[in-house]
Every structure is written in C-alpha cells, then in structure tokens.
Simulated assay, not measured.
Amino acid sequence: MIDFKKGLIPAIVQDSKTDKVLMLGYMNQEAYQKSINEKKVTFYSRSKKRLWTKGEISKNYLFIENILIDCDEDTLLIKAKPAGPTCHKGSDTCWKEMNNKNFLFYLEDIISHKINKKQENSYIYQLSKKGINRISQKLGEETIELIIESKDDNKNLFLNESADLLFHYLILLKKKGLKIQNVINILENRHSKS
C-alpha cells in the first residue's frame, strides 16, 4: 500500500486504450482518495497548493479505469480514459505527442478545442457561433454534394466530399453536446444484438 507519509507520490497517467503516457502529476492521500471516489484523476497541485481535478475547467477529464502501484509502493500508474486533449495547451499529451488513437477522435478534440477557446480566426469556431441551423444547413449542402459526386466516377472528388460531410457532422455533434463515441456505442450495441 502507498505510504503517503513520505510526501507527494508521482502519478503517471496512461491512456487505458492506447497505453500512451499522457501526463505526470503528484498526489497526496486526499487527492488519491478523491480520485478513487469520483473516478476522475485528481492531483495535488504544487503551484496552487490545493487539490486539482484534471479537467475542472476544460472538462477534459481523465476518467479512471485502473490504478496500479509499483513494486516499491511509491509511484502510481493510472490507466484512464481521456475526455479530450490532456495538455492544457491542447495537445494529446503533455509531451506534444499525438495519442495513437483514431484520427476522428483527434479531429473531434481539435474541433472542441477551437470552439471552447473561441478562436475567432477559425472556420470551426465561426461556423459554430452561427448556431445549429447554419451548421445543419452546411451539413445538408455537403450531403447533396456527396450524393452528386457519388453518381460520377471521380473517386477523388467523392472522397473529398465524404471528408467534408464527416467534418461538418463532427461540428454538429459538438454543438449538440455529443461525441462520435456516442454514435459508435449505438453501432456497437446494434452489432452485438445482430
């Protein structure tokens, strides 16, 4: 068992799906207990001198799947499911590495980041600011363009219109407060029943 009397304990956070190391933080007994109780990674912030739940402002929480204690019982390995970019600067990890997850999830994180940070020079933010009706209209336009291209033999144009449709669909999902994982869950559930 971890002996917190020694002081702060390093806690390495790893993506439970990809095994990519996302960040390193420190825990005291209180942060550890809060992490266990809430199933979200909480650290003791050395700079703020208080408990700090990762994602408390950005909502990019790290949802705990498993916690392992090393052989010397002085370091934690936390396997977690990230709800968005881990680094406060918007990257997947605190080492600016791309988490080897499906690119759609990465693109979804970029869309969320640009909207949440209100990046005025971003097409994504500008479209989101116009609201659900405009996003839906744009999605409809992209759907029609894809249908038109599907009737021809130009695979390049067809694929580009497919990408445009999917991109705008991700923006619509974000505006609705949903994620592509919600759609995947439904498809997986349907598959398991067939």
Rank of each mutant, 00 (worst) to 15 (best):
D3I: 04
F4D: 09
P10K: 12
A11N: 08
A11F: 10
I12W: 13
V13Y: 03
S16D: 10
T18I: 11
K20A: 10
K20I: 09
L22P: 06
E30W: 04
Q33H: 07
Q33W: 00
S35G: 04
I36H: 13
K39A: 12
T42S: 11
S45F: 09
R46E: 08
R46V: 08
S47Y: 04
S47P: 06
L51P: 13
K59Y: 15
E65K: 15
E73I: 06
E73N: 15
T75Y: 10
A80T: 11
A80F: 05
K81G: 10
P82Q: 04
A83W: 05
K89H: 07
K89S: 06
T93N: 09
N100L: 03
F105P: 03
I111K: 06
S112R: 02
S112K: 03
E120H: 02
S122K: 00
S122V: 01
I124Y: 00
K130T: 09
I132Y: 15
N133S: 14
R134H: 14
Q137C: 03
G140T: 06
I144F: 08
I147R: 04
K151T: 11
D152C: 03
D153W: 06
N154T: 04
N156R: 05
L157H: 12
E161C: 00
D164Q: 04
L170Q: 12
K175H: 14
I184R: 13
E188N: 14
E188P: 01
